[in-house]
Amino acid sequence: MEHDILPSYFIGDTRVDATLRRLYAATLRMDPPARQAVAAHGLDEGAPGFYEAMKDAYMPVTPDLGMLLYLLVRSSLARTVVEFGTSFGISSIWIAAALRSNGNGRLVTTEMDGGKVSCARNNLREAGLDDLVEIRAGLAEQTLREPLQHPIDLVLLDGAKSAYLPVLRLLEPNLRSGTLILADNTDMPGSRPFLDYVQEPCNGYRSASIVTEALGATHPCMVLLRVRE
Rank of each mutant, 00 (worst) to 15 (best):
E2K: 14
I11G: 00
D13E: 12
V16E: 01
D17M: 01
D17K: 03
A18P: 00
L20D: 01
L23E: 00
A25H: 10
A26P: 00
L28I: 13
M30H: 12
D31G: 09
D31K: 11
P33C: 14
A34P: 01
A34I: 09
R35H: 15
Q36H: 12
V38Q: 05
V38P: 01
A39N: 13
A40L: 11
A40P: 01
H41V: 12
D44E: 13
G46R: 06
G49Q: 11
F50D: 03
Y51Q: 12
K55V: 13
D56V: 08
A57H: 02
A57N: 08
Y58R: 07
V61C: 03
D64L: 11
L65Y: 04
L69W: 00
L71H: 14
L72T: 05
S75I: 15
A78P: 03
V82C: 05
E83K: 12
G85D: 04
S87Y: 09
S87Q: 03
I90E: 01
I90K: 03
S91P: 08
S91K: 04
I95S: 00
A97F: 01
L99G: 00
R100D: 05
S101K: 08
N102T: 06
N102K: 07
G103W: 05
R106V: 06
T109W: 03
T109H: 07
E111Y: 07
G114R: 13
G114E: 09
G115F: 11
V117H: 05
V117K: 07
A120E: 08
E126W: 05
L129S: 02
L132V: 10
V133P: 02
E134Y: 06
R136I: 10
Q142P: 05
R145H: 13
R145Q: 15
D153V: 07
V155Y: 04
L157I: 08
A160V: 09
A160R: 03
L165R: 01
L165K: 05
P166K: 06
V167S: 03
R169H: 15
N174V: 08
N174G: 08
L175W: 06
S177P: 05
G178E: 04
I181K: 01
M188S: 07
D196H: 14
Y197E: 07
Q199A: 15
Q199V: 04
Q199K: 15
N203G: 13
G204P: 07
Y205N: 07
S207F: 15
S209I: 11
S209P: 04
L215N: 08
A217V: 14
H219K: 12
P220D: 12
M222P: 02
L224Q: 08
L225S: 09
L225E: 11
V227S: 10
